[in-house]
Amino acid sequence: MKLAWKEMTRNKTKFVILGSIIFLVSFLTFMISGLANGLSQDNASLIKDLPDGTFLMSEDAEETVTYSRIDPQIQEKVLSDYPEAVGLSIQMGFLKDNEEKQQSVAFVASTGASYFEEPAQGEVFLDESLAEDQSVGEELLHEQSDMNFTAAGFVKQTTYSHSPVAFISLEDYEKMFRAEEMQLLFVPGEETVQAAGLQSFSKANFLDLIPSYSAEQLSLNMIVWFLVVISGLLFAIFFYMMNVQKIKLYGILKGIGVKTSTLFRMMWMQMMAIALVSLALSALLSQGFTMIAPANLPFSLPVETTLLLSVVFLAVGFVGATLSGIQIKKVEPLQAIQQGEV
């Protein structure tokens, strides 16, 4: 389509401006989406990194993990029915190092080592974020129970409710929190598992139960979709204004016999060209940022997310441009031809 291309090269400024705006908006969208994803990773990677599966907690806990107590008999049954399943307990608390420094952590104990670290009694595995202040072999104190732990090692990013996870043994957990029962059962697998007296949650639903998780995600995702809609509007408005300026030209082209569909294709080509270049640029830059982002910045932008967002941008831009192009259809060649200069 020579027409589309010729117009763009002859009116570079106009199209470069639109391109830069789309670039900025899509770059912002990618960055915020990276932050949203990074924050969710930072908030609850303990859960997020698990495979898909069902989380079970007692019905009377009313969707609050800390109140959940799983009946040992039912637990026994679920664990024997599903060999992959594990019992899991999580409690927020503090560990104090020998420099008297308090560190807020999420204590996690489980019945099986398939998904979680399972340290020996008196030992603790810590999230890597604590490696800055603590080192392997260091003694840590849990003041409330007056129990001592030895740091046995560090695990790759594992957090819960924005706190670094401290894996401890089941025995230590029972002593520390005087709790015989587990809070949760996790059964990996696609299908939802049900058990008597227990409420089932999918992974996504369970994540939403974590305080702060859904609030954070909701607002960030809203910004992301808002930006996507804005960019669609930008396309619509921009092409609308361009089309208004070109009504006369369209009339003349129609007058000499150019098809309306050709004019639409011309607009689509331009829209696609601008969008593809701007998106490629912002995708490249945001991926580049992933590589140089500081380690403690919660930022994670998988290539798939970038691609998905890009496709949505293209679709929205297409709709925007097309809606604004409806006026092309209405142009009558007669008026254009009987008027003066373009």
Binding site: K2, L3, K6, E7, T9, R10, N11, L249, I252, L253, K254, G255, I256, G257, V258, K259, A336, I337, Q338, Q339, G340, E341, V342
Partner: peptide, 30 residues
């Protein structure tokens, strides 16, 4: 439209050229 495109030619008071095409390109577009 097909007849206009293939069998008719138009000249009006103003030339109504396409602003972003060269003289040569105006003709090849036609």
């Amino acid at each position: 439209r097909q007849i206009r495109a293939s069998a008719f030619g138009f000249v009006f008071q103003s030339a109504h050229l396409v602003p972003f095409l060269t003289v040569e390109e105006q003709l090849s577009l036609m």
